[in-house]
Simulated scan of single mutants.
Amino acid sequence: MRAFENPDHWNKAATHYRETAHPFTAKFAEAALARVALSPESHVLDVATGTGALALAAARSGAQVLATDFSPGMVACVAAAGLPNVATRVMDGQALDLPDASFDAVFSIFGVIMFPDWQKGLSEMRRVTRPGGHGVVATWQEQGAATFLLLGDVRRKLFPGRAGMPMPEGVKAMSDPDDFARALVAAGYHDPHIETVTHDFQLDVVSLDAPDTLFGMSPDWTSLDDADKAAVVAEVRRLAGDRPVLPIPSTALIAVAEA
């Protein structure tokens, strides 16, 4: 089992993820929400919610939201926000314990793409979407985003003969818009519309003083020895130059499809 397939990995990372990744992924969650009209009567499901970037934003629009994740630690972060119109449940997105056609909009923001059986994840999303409702999925381009993208680029420059972390199969399979659209149709959705959205991850150069905290969620970092880690940090500092913040342009594909 790869680390990202293990709920314990995400339980341990939940607080750090909420502090570092959540503000960045929230930008893409807002972009996804802008593509679907919700009302206070809307019932929304967020699959693989993480720390709830989508779920909490949808709730602030007035919708009734259920946030699910296989990590109890992640679900606890969402529940801690205390929003009255957000319910939380620990649940495997590959086998949703939910009735058919029970949600007006079903989202997965960088979640279902990580599943071992991502096709089943998409099919489960479609199963619980009511006819006429929408499924919304966000994925990264194949090289990833933010610190993962930066670390991969630096590794390829410094250690060109060394294999890096393989991307999840779902990311690879849906990193091309046409392939992404076909996957949604195969899951039972129709008329998928896919757009690219780019935001800069703002890497605070001071965070390089604690690189294990900055990069520690990635096997591309944990597989390095101390000398290699020092070389990576030096290269990132070189890229930043005199800037206190290094922007890392990161592109997502956001798909909206009808049920």
Rank of each mutant, 00 (worst) to 15 (best):
V171L: 15
P219E: 15
F28V: 02
S42L: 10
A255C: 12
R237K: 15
P244E: 15
G241A: 11
F24H: 09
K27T: 08
D69E: 05
Q143I: 08
R155S: 05
A57E: 11
P72H: 06
G216C: 10
P177M: 03
Y17W: 14
R126A: 14
G241F: 13
L122S: 09
D178F: 11
L158N: 00
F148D: 11
R126G: 00
R60Y: 03
V205G: 06
L151Y: 06
T25H: 09
D178C: 10
V75M: 08
G241E: 10
T147I: 10
I254V: 14
A79C: 04
Q119E: 12
T198V: 04
L56S: 05
F180E: 04
H199G: 00
A3D: 13
A87K: 06
L96R: 14
V137I: 15
S102M: 07
R89P: 00
K120A: 11
V86G: 07
A252Q: 09
A81C: 14
T129F: 08
H22Y: 07
M165V: 06
A58T: 05
E19F: 01
Y17L: 11
R238E: 13
P177Q: 00
A146D: 14
A80F: 14
W140T: 03
A138W: 03
L239C: 11
W10C: 00
A186E: 05
T147W: 08
Q64T: 06
H22R: 14
